[in-house]
Simulated scan of single mutants.
Amino acid sequence: MTDEVGDAKRALRAELRQRRRNQTSTEREQATTALTAHLVDLATRTAARSVSAYLSAETEPNTRPFLNWAFAHDVRVLFPVSRPDGLLDWSVGDGESETRGLFGLPEPVGELLSPMAINDVDLIIVPAACIDHGGMRMGWGRGYFDKTLGSMEKRPPVYAVVFDSEYVESVPRERHDMPVDGVVTPSGIHEF
């Protein structure tokens, strides 16, 4: 990583974290309602019977109402579980029990499946710090999803979830960064 790109990413991540912390509860609730409708539409439109998604942390766009919908509609949900070696294991959560993972992020309690388990899903929903108009994803700097997506031989559609202000003109980019097929924001679904 060049220092210049790394510095630009660090500065942008700090700004985005602060912006997320400054959101009002009303803004968050409105965003959650809209995001949930779009995620349900996406899962329905793609006829996904199995999805990979994540348990949103407090300041992230809230995926939990969508996950509740998935459980209620017998859509199998695979959740990432961070490993110290930089790979992701997966778990089929029960939608109720969770713990704090390696980086203090919420993770499901359940049987651990290997990194290969993601190869069986119909749709992948990933977190992001921001997404640019060309589909380039900037994550939070640990590279877990870039490694996972980059190693998949045949990957299903991948959509990131961000707030409207995080869908931007361009993001600092490095060779290992992986693009997504679409982004879900409170204002809609954008495909690349």
Rank of each mutant, 00 (worst) to 15 (best):
T2P: 12
D3M: 11
D3C: 02
E4L: 12
V5C: 09
V5T: 14
G6M: 13
E15W: 09
N22T: 10
E29F: 06
Q30H: 14
Q30Y: 07
T32I: 01
A37M: 03
V51F: 08
S52R: 12
A57K: 10
E60C: 07
F66V: 01
F79M: 09
P80S: 12
R83P: 01
P84C: 09
G86T: 08
G86R: 12
W90Q: 02
S91D: 03
G93Y: 13
D94M: 12
T99Q: 15
L102Y: 14
F103V: 02
L105P: 00
P106Y: 13
E107I: 02
P108Q: 10
V109S: 13
P115E: 11
M116C: 08
N119D: 15
V121S: 08
D122A: 03
L123R: 07
I124T: 03
I125Q: 05
I125C: 07
V126W: 04
H133R: 15
M136V: 02
M138N: 04
G141H: 05
D146H: 07
M152T: 03
A160Q: 05
F163R: 04
D164H: 07
V171D: 07
E174C: 06
E174N: 12
H176I: 03
M178V: 08
V183Q: 09
T185H: 13
G188S: 08
E191D: 11
